[in-house]
Nucleic acid binder design. Structure first.
Lengths: 205, 205
DNA sequence: GCACACAATATTGTTAGCAACATTATGAGT
DNA sequence: ACTCATAATGTTGCTAACAATATTGTGTGC
């Protein structure tokens, strides 16, 4: 009973941390997520871990086998194709919505994000690079003004990270940085077709 | 201890039944979902009900308030707009994919679905009409060959039902039947632009 | 040395009971 | 009669122990 925080809060907290670990490639596809191990690692009861695992399973990031436990998902080739097909569907409308809605403050946040990426790249911090790259897409999604699309992106981004660690050559940088840069520039000058084109090209691997 | 079926199975089972209840308008937005009450109603332990509620919360169909309980979601106006915006984004590509992929067997199933709808309409079975109408869209989504889009539709359909019972005049039929009919016809003759046009018109309320 | 059966261990699934919180009911004071 | 405080009730959140299943380890026969 060291910390009796609101349960909701720390369940959500653990959930986020696991997603971050996936985004940073610190959890590989297929990794087993033992309940007691996680409970000890996070200092909470097994019940809460269980709930987190179930939430992750519902979003498709972990697979659960009865009486066997939970494992980080390893998307098949067909799943990977579907993930990217869905992103190619969603992200153009995200860009388009952002262009239509973005305030000056939003553009500022985008530039800050790019700056952070540039920083991480300069420091050769691979984990940070990967995570920030994903955060860029999530930030964009959060500005599109559609929470359902945003939620979907919140599931597709970590899944994308998993596919990258499965099917990409190791030590390949996630996204060339200047592409993010160019997209933001196109958004800033409200050039919709260019931004969409850049985004689609960006998602073409 | 009357039925010790595999827990996974009956959790999924309860989950489906609640979604069905939402789709049939037997659960109104804002309804409280008490844990003990549900546990008794379904003949399972409170823990399992808890897990189901959490899954429903993750998909956005119920809202949970700490120490207060779980309630069927009542989408706001802005949420409703976003739900339909998302459907207008997804369903055209669903139709397009179905046209590209549908086998003879799929078309048969679509026609069977339409026949069921026609039946329910003849019998003035309002609950069945509403649910079957939702099932039509889900059936279509399942044929599109993209499980992520299908999953998203599986969340958006029940949400749509909730918005209908919130913002539609009571006793309004969910969808005019012939529209589904026409869509299937357009799919059958592989007329993509017509099918998409019909679907968009269909989603225009 | 190998394959199989059987025991030991570890992990997951479930239940019952307790603690914490919110809601409702009761009653005293004005 | 109304308001506020306080007690009673009910509901949710959590923990710990138990049951069921899978995994690993050990030994015996061939």
């Amino acid at each position: 009973m060291e910390q009796s925080e609101a349960s909701k809060t720390d369940i959500e907290h653990i959930y986020e941390r696991i997603i971050n670990a996936i985004m940073e490639h610190r959890l590989s596809p297929g990794s087993k997520l033992g309940e007691v191990r996680m409970a000890e690692a996070f200092g909470v009861s097994r019940t809460k871990v269980r709930q987190v695992l179930m939430m992750l399973a519902k979003t498709g990031l972990v697979e659960q086998f009865p009486n066997r436990g939970a494992f980080i998902a390893s998307p098949s080739v067909s799943q990977t194709l579907e993930i990217f097909a869905t992103r190619r569907l969603l992200e153009p409308v995200i860009v388009s919505n952002v262009i239509a809605r973005a305030e000056r403050q939003d553009l500022k946040r985008l530039h800050q994000q790019i700056a952070k990426e540039k920083d991480a790249r300069k420091q050769r911090n691979r984990q940070a690079i990967i995570r920030l790259s994903g955060d860029f897409h999530m930030l964009l999604a959060s500005m599109a003004g559609n929470r359902y699309i945003e939620k979907m992106m919140g599931e597709l981004c970590p899944l994308t990270c998993l596919t990258i660690s499965l099917y990409d050559a190791p030590h390949t940088p996630a996204c060339p940085e200047d592409e993010h840069d160019q997209i933001v520039a196109a958004i800033a000058r409200r050039d919709e077709s260019a931004a969409i084109e850049l985004m689609l090209h960006h998602l073409h691997h």
